[in-house]
Design a protein around this nucleic acid. Structure first.
Lengths: 160, 160
DNA sequence: TGGGGCAATATGGGCGTCAACGGGATGAAG
DNA sequence: CTTCATCCCGTTGACGCCCATATTGCCCCA
């Protein structure tokens, strides 16, 4: 499997290091990423981590904004200014810098969450709160909010 | 027969393993699944388990959304983050991780329920309660109550 | 047709491997 | 000299691999 899937929580040691889940490391290698590119998520206290293609994705997002508005400039500043490379050491660990801590609130533990083409790093309790919100939104969508659109039958198709 | 049918309850051993029913394993093999994809059901304390085609189906659905809207992000978060791979050992068992226990309430026994193209894992007593609700809903519907059974997830299992 | 035995399945447990983690040593940088 | 990053090694616990056993349902044969 070459997609980032599932989630795990790992501890930060006394030297500020944390192990990237072995499964994720395998995906990184399979995808041929030479280095990990990390960006602060635009509207969440999380870090998006992946290959360089992640940057393209963000730039496309910014391109959608009206270039005359301040928003686009803000986003560009944010994305290009506040990104970093994460170096894996020989044991598959990365150092948790202030860059990471500030934006995410991460202190002693890191929650890694697979997102398909990339993965995210969260402070565990914030992740839990956010996950609950997501499930709530999806559930409402599925129960008939027509503005939402999740196809019926997706999860367990129905009312048997 | 290449569909998941019937149900069975198996015990979790001291090492946290449980046998997947032999009949299900046969279906898995016949369908050529290399690994099992497990997803936390949205509105029920159950796990949906199937092959990678289950994941493909979800990803195809996500691809239909505008990738920069919240909906697409929510769906990806759910499909990639609230899921995991289940590895069958050589005796056809899987290990019951915290990932499974949290969402389902499974502790010492697992109820496997065939659902055609996939199967589900439940905590036995919760499955029984849910089954009773389903029966009642169907019965009322048959007796002409139009409100019964229409609202999807109305009795949705008191999940979460 | 009833009993014995065979085969397959669920379950228990020993054991080696590997990932997560802690910590020392070395070297570069301020 | 202090701080921090990198490298390397040891420990621990979880997980996969393998083998053993028991229980059950089925088939064959007398």
């Amino acid at each position: 499997m070459d997609r980032f899937l599932s989630s795990a929580v790992n501890r930060i040691d006394a030297k500020g290091r944390v192990s990237v889940p072995a499964h994720f490391r395998a995906v990184v290698q399979r995808r041929g990423y030479q280095e990990l590119y990390a960006l602060k998520a635009l509207d969440r206290p999380a870090l998006d981590v992946g290959g360089l293609d992640l940057l393209d994705r963000y730039e496309a997002r910014i391109a959608m904004e009206d270039p005359f508005l301040q928003t686009a400039d803000d986003m560009s500043f944010f994305v290009h200014g506040d990104s970093d490379f994460l170096k894996l050491d020989q044991d598959g660990r990365i150092t948790v810098t202030d860059f990471i801590r500030e934006h995410t609130g991460i202190a002693t533990e890191v929650a890694f969450v697979g997102r398909g083409t990339f993965f995210q790093m969260w402070e565990p309790s914030r992740l839990a709160a956010y996950g609950a919100q997501v499930r709530e939104r999806l559930l409402r969508m599925r129960q008939g909010d027509p503005s939402a659109g999740m196809a019926r039958g997706a999860t367990g198709g129905g009312a048997e």
